[in-house]
Design a protein around this nucleic acid. Structure first.
Length: 1090
RNA sequence: GGGCGAGUAGCUCAGUUGGUUAGAGCGCCUGCUUUACACGCAGGAUGUCGGCGGUUCGAGUCCGUCCUCGCCCACCA
């Protein structure tokens, strides 16, 4: 037997456990007919950088579930991998390229830049995997995937093709959030708001040929004057009087309901609106009338006539009451345009790089938008067309990736139709679970409706409560089309050839391409200038029929790469080009739960070297049919809409079934200030820093303990300053030059907590909260050490419960209950409660009581064997219960325990396994529950605690044995006699324990009363102190008795409370009265000597 | 503006369908090199359950209202 060191050292133990697991391929999962699979798909970390504590809690929760299910006998697969994170990764690499080499992506070119990004990806993927392995993540590393590897790429292409064929993917002009720096569209959730000091310019647009009584100018206001160059109208409300009245009424209602402190503000608002009816309304009505008469405005600088539109978007209560309309650069104006398509156009005055386009006019084209803004303002001012300028703080959208201001821009993008479609959408085409859904979003909504079931009987449920189901549904219910194109270089290129082809060319080509276009694995659409979108056959027919059709936009999508390559030269010759855009990252991550399993066809899926096969082998089914649908998706709530919803709809669309049945939403990790840890905020800390200091188990223990409900977790972070060596609280410290650096409060010098800033010393962050976990591991280690020191020659013999000692029956009873509680809480997705149940049993019952109780037996020849056997068994069981939480230390101890006690068990041998990771989860043992033993031990506990309190009060040295006299009524004495008395003596350092019905004579005894038992410790004195203590206790007792008396005297209580509750109160009262009697008896005994 | 959540011991948090004296860990106080563990052991102190009002025999728990904090969504010419 190896001697265990006195202090647990995770640095030596953790690598050893890891090695054992990897060597035994303990994380690997392969399809096996007849065994239930349990599958978790890891939320893919982005390869933009290293993991922080937010990822750690996510990974630890998954590992907890996976290890638990593995022990329960499920075939547990945890699929790991990383996400290429298109825009994020490209932005990081581009930024470095510029900082280190002063180059832009255009200097490098597409191919070279992508090559750079692959290198970056390799580096970070490796780091991420190292971090996860350090945490103990038991992923099947031989199945690790990347969203851009061959297997996943094929799936992406397949889904795109299917959706394109089904008409669910279309190309359209839409207003998108444009990042002028990265020159790509970005999603709404990739934006953040930032308050910027700006201005509000009021511009005067001349009315053409004003009539008497009509205004000569219409005033409109904007924060972005340069966009006026793209104005195509001015709008006015069709019924300004009614709208203003409505607004006034609303303001009045608000004033009536306003709380005191908002009253003034509400009153002022009401007054302002009432005033407006006089100042603005007449003119607005005039303008509305002018609009009806088709009067025109002269757009200054452009010298273009534009109409006055009547549209409700123009609010009479705001600004001048009129609003300029720039459909190509403002979302609301875009909507106005949609309502007035036949009256106005959209003019795009911006280029992709943020410079003004030719459409802005010769004076402005080529100017950066901010320079153009100044120029436009100056030019208008020079013409006397600038009414006034206000200073204003404006909340402006910024791009999360480039940190630059976003411009709304009209551009051509690819979309997935989320809404309902005429005739519905065929989900799971060609599978046995095929069904028809109204639309993609609706299908995903239905999937978590409790009344819905897929053909496999599955649906999606959220945990720990269904609060987040509402988030999910609310988002999907908008059914907003999903913009899937990004103008990036890093990602899955959109597999479409497109081009504008002239009529003549098309007709020449028809014969050539038609055979191709009629194939199953090719889909083409031809968009005619009149807006019709037709299949090739219909389109060619239309072309022949109508000679006025001059050209068509041709879009061709190939299902597979091979045929595409074959036809490519022909397509090129016809003037088609591959679409340069790439797909939104979420398009590929939506497929993660099945693309990683080889969909659409595991038999032909392409693997990276060394990876486990996904195809069927012999009798074993293939991975896709065996592991899909998966079990549980573990994630933080911010990703519900972005990812969870899209995985559900992609799974339903491709396979006709949900990707998982449960979604476990865990807490977010916040820093000491209460802000969410994230890479971009710079407040994330590397789990490896914590592991190095406290151990991985300690970190896992604390993260599990913190995972209570959905309460977010604050994790105050400190570092020791590399300059003063003093602890620095990062929540209070000032930042240095970057968000990753801080200033030492003593010296004012700068240090770095991540290690990214050159020339600044690195300080390792830590958090004292993890000491709890470290202490726990040490306790576990030492309890095992104690056991192992005492297990030499441990026998195994089946033992009947009747033959066991009182404390043995007690600990088995408590173990049985603890096991059930851990199980119950894990099933309820409550890791904290599960861990605490295991902890409380282990620490408070096993260590504090059982180990102490059996120490004498371990030294006693006759009783030693049984005590050893029980000790080995209980240790075995607690190691199994704790393994999913703290895998490393339990694995190490398990090895030692098996060496010392090859067979463990009480009535029969427990199932054994070489590694605890593969050991069977403790089975329920209701037959071990022993209510009598529990009651007796509870009394022993109470008496011992009281006796110890006496010892502490009189500062009796631990080594000093004292006599203890227990005075109790006959029935109580019957319980405490024998074994219990022995245990009491053992636990409170008694010289002797006397059980009697007679208080000892003399008053030189310290006393305590527990229930109906009086405790005397003769020989320690301070009669007055004793009396005071007992009198205080009597006072409290009397008060409580009074309270219950009153309650029971209350007719309402007796009549209306459940009988069981009333009965309990009566019992309680009786108990308290007995206790009071005993107390008074003790007081009398004290008084005897007076 | 709409929605969701939180407020319990000095700190971080539990507290099941209302029902004994509201709990844990950390911290604090006292004592202890008790043969596994001082990262430990034994003992102890600590609460206007955010405020007010209501329902109820009974409220930390249910309802109303107000205060404070956080998050999500929408909008901002």
């Amino acid at each position: 037997m190896t001697e265990l060191s006195k202090q647990y050292d995770p640095r030596t133990v953790e690598p050893r456990s890891t090695e054992r697991w990897l060597e035994a391929k303990a994380f690997a999962a392969a399809p096996k007919a007849g065994v239930t699979p349990y599958v978790i798909m890891m939320p893919l970390p982005n390869v933009t950088g290293a993991l922080h504590m937010g990822h750690a809690i996510d990974n630890v929760m998954q590992d907890l579930l996976i290890r638990w299910h593995r022990m329960m006998g499920d075939n547990a697969l945890w699929m790991a991998g990383t996400d290429h994170a298109g825009i994020g990764t490209q932005a990081v690499v581009e930024k470095r390229l510029f900082e280190l080499e002063g180059k832009t992506r255009h200097d490098l070119g597409r191919e070279a830049l992508v090559q750079r990004i692959w290198e970056w990806k390799g580096q970070y993927q490796e780091r991420i995997v190292r971090q996860q392995q350090a945490m103990g993540c038991s992923c099947d590393w031989d199945r690790q995937r990347f969203t851009m590897d061959a297997m996943c790429a094929r799936s992406v292409r397949r889904m795109f093709f299917a959706m394109f064929r089904d008409g669910l993917i279309y190309q359209g002009h839409r207003l998108v959030n444009w990042d002028c720096q990265l020159q790509t569209a970005v999603a709404d959730d990739e934006l953040y708001k930032k308050a910027v000091q700006g201005h509000f310019w009021h511009l005067r647009y001349p009315v053409i040929d004003p009539q008497p009584g009509e205004p000569t100018h219409i005033v409109v206001a904007t924060t972005r004057p340069e966009t006026m160059l793209g104005d195509t109208a001015v709008a006015c409300h069709p019924d300004p009087a009614a709208a203003l009245t409505a607004a006034t009424e609303q303001a009045r209602a608000k004033l009536d309901a306003a709380p005191a402190k908002e009253r003034d503000e509400a009153a002022a608002e009401l007054e302002r609106l009432q005033e407006r009816a006089k100042t603005h309304l007449p003119q607005l009505q005039t303008i509305a009338a002018m609009a009806r008469n088709g009067r025109q405005i002269m757009l200054p600088l452009q010298e273009r006539t534009i109409p006055i539109l009547l549209d409700e978007w123009a609010k009479p209560e705001l600004g001048s009451g009129c609003v300029k309309i720039t459909p190509a650069h403002d979302p609301n104006d875009y909507d106005v345009w949609q309502r007035h398509r036949d009256e106005i156009d959209a003019i795009n005055v911006l280029e992709a790089d943020g410079k003004m386009s030719a459409a802005a006019g010769a004076d402005y084209a080529g100017l950066d938008r901010f320079a153009a803004r100044k120029r436009v303002v100056a030019d208008l001012d020079a013409r006397g067309l600038l009414d006034r300028v206000e200073d204003r703080t404006i909340e402006i959208d910024h791009s999360d990736r480039s940190k630059t201001i976003i411009e709304p821009l009209l551009s051509k993008q690819w979309f997935v139709r989320m809404g309902d479609v005429e005739g519905g959408v065929l989900m799971g085409r060609g599978t046995e679970r095929e069904f028809r859904a109204p639309g993609l979003a609706q299908a995903a909504i239905d999937a978590c409706d409790p009344s819905w079931r897929s053909a496999s009987g599955r649906q999606v449920a959220f945990h720990p409560d269904d609060r987040y189901r509402r988030t999910y549904i609310a988002w999907l219910a908008e059914k907003r089309d999903w913009c899937i194109s990004r103008q990036l270089w890093w990602g899955h290129q959109i597999p479409v050839w497109r081009g504008e082809v002239q009529r003549q060319q098309l007709l020449i080509l028809e014969g050539l391409v038609q055979p191709w276009l009629s194939r199953d694995d090719v889909t083409a659409w031809l968009a005619l200038p009149d807006g019709r979108r037709l299949e090739p056959t219909a389109a060619f027919a239309a072309l022949r029929e109508d000679e006025s059709i001059a050209r068509a936009d041709v879009l061709v999508c190939f299902r597979d790469e091979g045929p595409e390559a074959e036809v490519a030269p022909m397509l090129r010759a016809a003037g088609l080009e591959p679409d340069p855009d790439v797909l939104d990252t979420w398009f590929s991550s939506a497929l993660w739960p099945h693309s990683t399993l080889g969909w659409p066809d595991p038999a032909t899926a392409e693997l990276d070297p060394g990876q486990s096969p996904v195809a069927a082998i012999g009798d074993a089914p293939d991975c896709l049919s065996y592991f899909y649908p998966g079990s549980c998706l573990v994630t933080a709530r911010d990703i519900i809409t972005l990812w969870v919803a899209r995985m559900v709809l992609a799974g339903l669309y491709n396979l006709g079934d949900v990707p998982f049945t449960d979604v476990f939403i865990h807490a977010n990790i916040l820093d000491g200030k209460g802000e969410r840890m994230s890479k971009s905020k710079g407040n994330g800390i590397d789990p490896v820093d914590i592991i190095e200091r406290y151990g991985a188990d300690a970190m896992r223990y604390v993260l599990c303990e913190l995972q209570t409900g959905t309460q977010d977790v604050k994790l105050p972070v400190q570092v020791d300053s590399p300059f003063s060596n003093q602890p620095v609280d990062l929540a209070k410290a000032k930042h240095g030059r970057s968000i990753f650096t801080y200033l030492c409060p003593e010296t004012g010098k700068e240090f770095d907590v991540i290690g990214t800033v050159d020339g600044v010393p690195k300080a390792n962050p830590y958090s004292e909260r993890f000491e709890i976990g470290r202490n726990f591991c040490n306790k576990l280690w030492n309890s095992a050490r104690f056991a192992l020191l005492n297990l030499e020659g441990v026998p195994f013999a089946p033992r009947a419960r009747a033959d066991l000692a009182l404390e043995d029956r007690w600990i088995l009873s408590r173990l049985s209950r603890a096991r059930d509680e851990v199980q119950r809480q894990l099933e309820a997705y409550n890791p904290s409660a599960a861990l605490n149940a295991a902890r409380d049993f282990f620490w408070n019952e096993l260590c504090d009581w059982y180990l102490e109780l059996i120490k004498p037996r371990l030294r006693d020849g006759a009783e030693r064997g049984q005590a050893q056997q029980l000790l080995a068994t209980v240790l075995d069981q607690i190691l199994r219960l704790l393994h999913p939480f703290v895998p490393f230390v339990t694995e190490e101890i398990w090895g030692q325990l098996r060496a010392a006690a090859p067979t463990r068990g009480v009535d029969r041998a427990l199932p054994d396994a070489e590694l605890v990771i593969r050991a069977a989860w403790p089975e329920a043992r209701p037959d071990w529950v022993d209510a009598d033993a529990e009651r007796t031990l509870e009394q022993v506990h109470d008496v011992v605690t009281a006796a110890r309190e006496i010892r502490a009060r009189y500062q009796v040295a631990p080594s000093q044995r004292v006599p203890v006299v227990l005075v109790a009524p006959a029935d109580r004495r019957a319980t405490l006699e024998g074994a219990a008395t022995t245990l009491i003596g053992r636990m409170c350092g008694a010289e002797s324990v006397e059980l009697t019905d007679q208080a000892p004579r003399g008053k030189d005894a310290a006393t305590a009363v527990v229930g109906d038992v009086e405790i005397f410790v003769p020989g320690v004195v301070d009669v007055e102190a004793e009396r005071r203590k007992l009198e205080k206790q009597r006072e409290q007792l009397t008060a409580r008795i009074g309270g219950i008396d009153k309650k029971l005297a209350n007719e309402g209580f007796v009549a209306k409370a459940p009988p069981a509750v009333v009965e309990r109160e009566r019992q309680n009262l009786a108990g308290l009265r007995t206790q009071l009697e005993a107390l008074e008896e003790t007081l009398r005994a004290l008084g005897d000597g007076d």
